[in-house]
Design a protein around this nucleic acid. Structure first.
Lengths: 205, 205
DNA sequence: CAAAAAACTTAATCATGATTAAGAAACGAG
DNA sequence: CTCGTTTCTTAATCATGATTAAGTTTTTTG
């Protein structure tokens, strides 16, 4: 009985981590032995809709790889409202890296927008893994280099497009995503009010 | 004669690259032998004010470490104006990393705002260096991780602060920098018009 | 040093999108 | 299936910041 449960869990973990291994192998080599070393240092976690990976005041406990689902990162603004600064979906890493690296309290929330599953890499484990598998430095170098350029491009759109253009640009870039999150979250992310988005959508499609 | 010139040049290069070595050693170990390996793969370049490191249509030829000076990265918008999306100053790396990595034409300009000096790391050389000095992957992982979080924070300010607040926040964060670039560039970077900035400054200090 | 170019200022008018408020629709827990 | 909560819509008023245009100051270059 105990044995069976253990076996099921082990298989389940290996299976649930396939998307991460696949993602890593897109960028750097990783032997099966190295992969099992990695698996020993991470854990898999189901996160219910509206549950938090991180809340303001806490130290960001992990670097999270989103296996599937959707998360939002937001802050509380000076007056009461929530400002979404980032969404994360399948195959993205998400964390407050300032809090994570320095192990200091965060000012952010990371919350599941829908039932999701993530792989958690804790700071200690990550430090050890970087020693054991130095190609992970290269992997994350590439991941962050891309994340950085993505944010620069996003800034370009924020500076150059009107609210309406921003909405349609986002809609064209991620057509399915628009259905997936509440409109008020999308409005916050795109930098305008839900009322304005409602007005834009009323005009055409 | 020939000998003397060579000696002077060699000393000059080693000296001019000190800020880069110093920056790298803030994050990863680098022996003197490794440092000289690095020096063999990079070159130092003086860039006059208004000269370009990159122009739209070209492939981004290098990853540039700014030893001293100031650069702006900008694009031409749909109607004639220039949109500055990034400044770079001492001890920052700057490049169009999409163009650089894929060796495909860029849509951006990187131009010196004042007489500057940079260290150029070309794509080929960088690839070889990553093989020879794997700790450079870690170094750039950290550099990009920070650049990414810096851009996320910037997005937060763009979404939450009014134009006037953005100006004063920037002014407080980088007081000397405000003197250094023309106001119309600062206005573009902060996402409003030069006329508006002029009005804001007229109110107080 | 003088002329030309680049950068900055001021002010009037205009437009995008915020705010407020009330009602409608969709969703979720019991 | 129904009540309560969350989300979305509509419309009127308001404010931030854009646009336009003309004039002034500063910087660059011959």
């Amino acid at each position: 009985m105990k044995n069976k449960t253990t076996t099921i869990k082990a298989v389940s973990k290996a299976e649930s981590c396939v998307p991460l291994l696949h993602h890593i192998r897109r960028y750097v080599p990783l032997s099966d032995d190295e992969a099992s070393l990695l698996l020993d240092s991470i854990h898999f976690k189901i996160v219910n809709s509206k549950a938090f990976l991180l809340q303001a005041g806490q130290v960001c406990g992990g670097n999270y790889f989103i296996v599937n689902g959707c998360f939002r990162m937001y802050l509380n603004t000076d007056y009461g409202t929530e400002q979404i600064i980032q969404f994360g979906i399948d195959n993205w890493w998400i964390a407050d890296y300032t809090s994570f690296e320095q192990q200091r309290p965060s000012d952010r929330f990371i919350q599941a927008v829908e039932k999701s599953s993530v792989i958690v890499m804790e700071k200690k484990e990550q430090d050890v893994l970087f020693q054991k598998l130095p190609q992970l430095e290269r992997y994350f170098r590439i991941v962050f280099q891309r994340a950085y350029t993505a944010q620069l491009n996003r800034i370009h759109f924020m500076l150059n497009l009107s609210g309406e253009e921003r909405y349609y640009h986002f809609h064209n870039s991620f057509p399915d995503f628009v259905q997936r999150v509440p409109q008020y979250m999308l409005a916050s992310y795109l930098g305008f009010t839900p009322e304005f988005l409602s007005k834009v959508r009323a005009k055409r499609g």
